[in-house]
Amino acid sequence: MRKIRYREALREALREEMQRDPRVFVIGEDVGRYGGAYAVTQGLLQEFSPQRIIDAPMSEAIIVGAALGAAVVGGRPVAEIMYVDFATLAMDQIVNQAAKLHCMFGGQLIAPLVIRTQQGTGRGAGPQHSQSLEAWFAHVPGLKVVMPATPYDAKGLLKSAIRDNNPVIFIEHKGLYALEGEVPEEEYTIPLGVADIKRPGNNVTLIAYSYMVHTALAAAQELSQAGISAEVVDLRTLAPLDMDTVSASVFKTRRAVVIHEASQFGGFGAEIAASLQERLFDTLTAPVRRIGGLHVPLPAHSQLEKQVVPSVDQIVQVVKEMIGTPEMAAKHATTQTLCCKSI
């Protein structure tokens, strides 16, 4: 199968949806002449028109607001917010308006709007350009949240997001745009709300999304050399959340680690961990572990930044702790004996 980059897969999705449906248009900062800050929309202005690839003034609130208004009266806009950090400037439009419209107005209005943005570390871009804010959006009823990890998923999910009748926050990762992966030439879509097992395994389930799927896959590879078989589940969408696939995997492996770049404190991993213990408390052989970012404003310094977010080594270490090396198992047994004696 042919291989293309994550950004090219996204561009193909936009192009195909714009060709398929004349109501689809793109609006955002530097999406036209510049081709997008991360080159996703490159060439689309030339292929389409300034009426369908709209360079907007630097006004995040009205970019989302205008996209929303157009969506309400028949358009299918894709608004681009250059960095998820800048979505803070449009939060009323996203949270109070787009997310609420359909339900608040008794189902009279719909808001079929996609907000494409990107987040995450990898460029040393600092505290205002590298955050991971997905938990904010997932917490708001009425929003769908999509976080693709591969070119294949990026294309199929973006096409579904554009066709969805609800506001979708589509969060890409700045560290993935150059990633190559297999993407078929033929038309396909991926439904929102279906997780994907990126690597099968039996001893532990690593639950991740976006860039961290690749970190988890690298950890799984390393663990396999130590004789530990890790299953990697890619959530792909946080809302709707495919808890059934996650639970089925953990039911099998009996151990779970949730991994994300966002601050661990109050992060989405807590939701997964809590749901797992509610569903599978008796099955689990160890507490569900979370590996998230440190709760700190990200330093604009590539080397320091790396230390804030989860690493392959960290995941490997946590899994080994959970499963236990021979000496850990011995230590565990001693502790238990001591506990029993004290009783």
Binding site: A61, I62, A66, L68, A70, V73, Q97
Partner: peptide, 9 residues
């Protein structure tokens, strides 16, 4: 914002 978007469309 919604009004402006309706006008844009």
């Amino acid at each position: 914002g919604i009004a402006t978007g309706a006008a844009l469309w």
